[in-house]
Design a protein around this nucleic acid. Structure first.
Lengths: 198, 198
DNA sequence: GTCTATAATTCGATAGAC
DNA sequence: GTCTATCGAATTATAGAC
């Protein structure tokens, strides 16, 4: 047994530095977008030398790829009362945004960085579609429903955190849930044109 | 009567050049975002020298300000049957986007350009709010309703034209209207939590 | 592992000839 | 009005000393 096995999953000496870089990168990318967030500024925030960023992440693209790792952490929709799916989803997304600026960084970067839009597509097709598919709507409509949900959820994020439309920013979370919840609910389980079971 | 009056509102010799610059600028800003759309590239598209752009518009910011002039051209909502307001608005926005890339340019630039987000805020508060206020809902809720409409409309534009989510891109206009129309209708005239007049 | 120095681009903007 | 030439600044990325 050699020394490398004596230290399983050894915490590298510079893991703290790497984490600091990622933290600073996420904040800068979220605040300034991809192009305006410079490696120099990120390094300054993390209190390290700019060349360290290159050493650890290879390039600016590599840094962004690492900083933009994101999981929606969608709850198990089968555990939610079927008539409260929309409400639950909106509440979940609000919490997810306020606690993690990664999605805001992705959204802001999506217009300039070729990989960011692709990343968002994957997140909101793979992760969301599989969640939508877990309960028994017609599989043929799953993609469309997930896309509609994404359009409202991302639009809410855009107007609340990027464009910052005053009325949307001012709405308390409970009221956002009350207004947008029914929209998501209909996209998930309803039909178009409001010809619902009225 | 002197010569200046003999040629009222004279079309300057270079108006064609100015228009070509604006056309190229809108396309580049829409495709690449503010930072990546360079004056050099715009000038090349317009088949003119880069210095002409500076001469006509002073700076890159000035050029963007001129290129991002946008009017929602909202129809008179009082002429629309009250139960078809949502449908009419969604249809109008779809047509407005497909025919003019200015809004896409604004949306793409909103994350990098300080003035673009401000411009969108004005467009979607002033223009939309006044339209929402024209019919008789409680004035206290006008701003909120306009904000909610903007969140869904801008989210639709974001997922359809910027992020390009496949299911949203693939939806024919009629189906977008059928699905999203009722959402806008409820934001305009309904109440939250789906406790509508059922 | 960390930092200095700098290479190699690229961009917005300016000056001035024609 | 139009174009050539170029400045000055900022960026990513690399090479190499310590």
């Amino acid at each position: 047994m050699d020394m490398t096995e004596a230290v399983p999953a050894r915490p590298r000496r510079s893991d703290a530095t790497r984490a600091a870089i990622l933290r600073a990168a996420r904040a800068r990318f979220a605040a300034d977008g991809y192009d305006r967030a410079t490696i120099r500024a990120i390094a300054a925030d993390a209190r390290i030398d700019p060349s360290m960023v290159m050493r650890y992440y290879g390039s600016k693209e590599g840094l962004f790829a690492a900083a933009a790792e994101f999981d929606l952490r969608l709850p198990d929709l089968t555990q939610v009362p079927p008539d409260r799916l929309g409400e639950a989803l909106v509440r979940h997304f609000l919490n997810r945004w306020e606690g993690d600026e990664t999605l805001a960084a992705l959204l802001r970067a999506a217009s300039a960085n070729p990989g960011a839009a692709e990343r968002i597509r994957h997140i909101f097709t793979d992760q969301l579609s599989t969640a939508v598919a877990t309960f028994g709507t017609d599989p043929a409509t799953t993609g469309r429903r997930a896309g509609l949900v994404a359009s409202q959820i991302l639009g809410l994020a855009l107007t609340r955190y990027i464009v910052r439309l005053p009325p949307v920013v001012a709405m308390p979370p409970a009221e956002v849930v009350a207004w947008v919840g029914p929209t998501i609910q209909r996209y998930l389980t309803g039909r178009p044109e409001g010809e619902g079971p009225c």
